[in-house]
Design a protein around this nucleic acid. Structure first.
Lengths: 239, 239
DNA sequence: CGTGTCTTTGAAGCGAGTCAATCAGGGTGG
DNA sequence: CCACCCTGATTGACTCGCTTCAAAGACACG
């Protein structure tokens, strides 16, 4: 066994508290190691998979940043999520044995490949894994419902505030500063995710800067007034 | 064993081709029967569960029609789906051991109660069930992504067309006429689902009627020109 | 037959989209 | 090392689709 393969094992991965094995004990973790077949490198701009590709494996993001997007027959497309370290890609593909969205790396990335058939068989004899996997799928459903709420009933400022708060929370959980971040995606990608045009995203960033809520320098964002962002979400009756 | 309990068994349920046991053989079906604990009746307007309720069971709709809706802290709320016979309710609750949305019956309904712990243990020794359950969760994710596409990039007419096409397809799969239907939900609920105000929904229905695409009499809808509905989705370049 | 809920329709206003021009960086090649 | 180019970001002016506010109509139910 080669040394760099040891490194990739779940049992020694620093993401184990965020990824599939949340809450696992030491013994559980070593059982998981059998599951992760290999690492895979994806360069910025490249696709990990495309819609229509046959489904073999799920992928856990180790490093880097992804977007997933679906597209309709008439060429419309929609960013459905942004994934960072510890998050799973490919859950949509189980339903039809084919991927239903594209997963594109927004920066150079590394993923762990998890063959789905092995995940199924291992989780049959390993209750914690089964439970953990179900929770992750369910969490994705809950997340999607939150996005539906956002897209269905929020105004531009509220959408961007919700987006930034979500991003900073997830970054904070990974040990990054919750007040200073670098966006990995373009204004257009943010807009697609939030159901806005890129100009509206840009204008809203500028508005936040004027109001002293953010400092915006291209993709570098500093949160100056976290309460103001929260306030945008907790009081729709602000008008 | 009482006669009416025999009737509720998956092995003799006429929904078995739409529900959890899709593609199961005779033997598989009888193994499933152990899973469904009981039936439950929900009256029109009542909740099957509320957001925050502790999670015990999933529910399969036997008869009737439900809506699920999430709400944010500030009282905004969003219909996240409409469920009919054979569809599962409660998948969102697995992630946090609590329901995250309300499930409200839009007409008198009957559901099968599926204790989640039993579903987990049975699916550990029963590959087909495990696989089927995973597919159902994954399908929910794919559906949500479709709704996100709708909410993020479609205009009012396109949203309503997509909604109606989806509804008629699901009704057709259950043996109902694909051209004539009775809406179980109000304009406001449709609007909430589609990210529109109820007046806009009403106006769009009227527009479709003027154009000869639909015949609309309150909640009674007849589809006159199916192609026109499809055309609204397949050519955004119609302008 | 009245009452409340849901639906329809109109008129006016506004938020976000569209179109277009300019600006800022990052990378590349001379 | 710098000028250039290309992509992405910003900003402005105008337009349009949807929302808002308001009133009237239709239906279901007691």
């Amino acid at each position: 066994m080669k040394l760099n393969e040891l490194k990739v094992a779940c049992s020694s991965c620093n993401l184990r508290e965020l990824c599939l094995p949340v809450g696992f004990g030491r013994d559980d973790l070593t059982r998981l190691d059998a599951l992760v077949a290999s690492r895979k490198t994806v360069k910025r701009g490249d696709a990990l998979f495309h819609a229509g590709d046959p489904f073999q494996s799920l992928y856990a993001v180790r490093t880097g940043f992804f977007k997933t997007c679906v597209s309709s027959e008439d060429g419309r497309d929609q960013v459905t999520g942004f994934q960072m370290a510890g998050e799973l890609l490919g859950l949509d593909a189980i339903s039809q044995d084919r991927h239903t969205c594209d997963a594109i790396a927004l920066e150079d990335a590394q993923v762990c490949q998890i063959p789905y058939s092995q995940l199924e068989s291992l989780s049959r004899e390993f209750t914690e894994l089964q439970h953990s996997f179900h929770k992750i799928m369910s969490r994705e459903i809950v997340r999607d419902h939150g996005v539906m709420l956002l897209l269905g009933s929020m105004r531009a400022e509220e959408r961007l505030a919700a987006f930034l708060l979500n991003l900073t929370q997830r970054l904070a959980a990974r040990g990054f500063s919750p007040t200073s971040l670098v966006l990995r995606m373009t204004r257009e990608e943010i807009g697609s995710y939030l159901g806005l045009k890129l100009e509206t995203v840009s204008r809203t960033f500028s508005k936040f800067q004027e109001d002293g809520v953010l400092e915006v320098k291209q993709r570098h964002i500093r949160v100056l007034d976290l309460d103001a962002l929260h306030a945008l979400l907790n009081s729709s009756s602000a008008c």
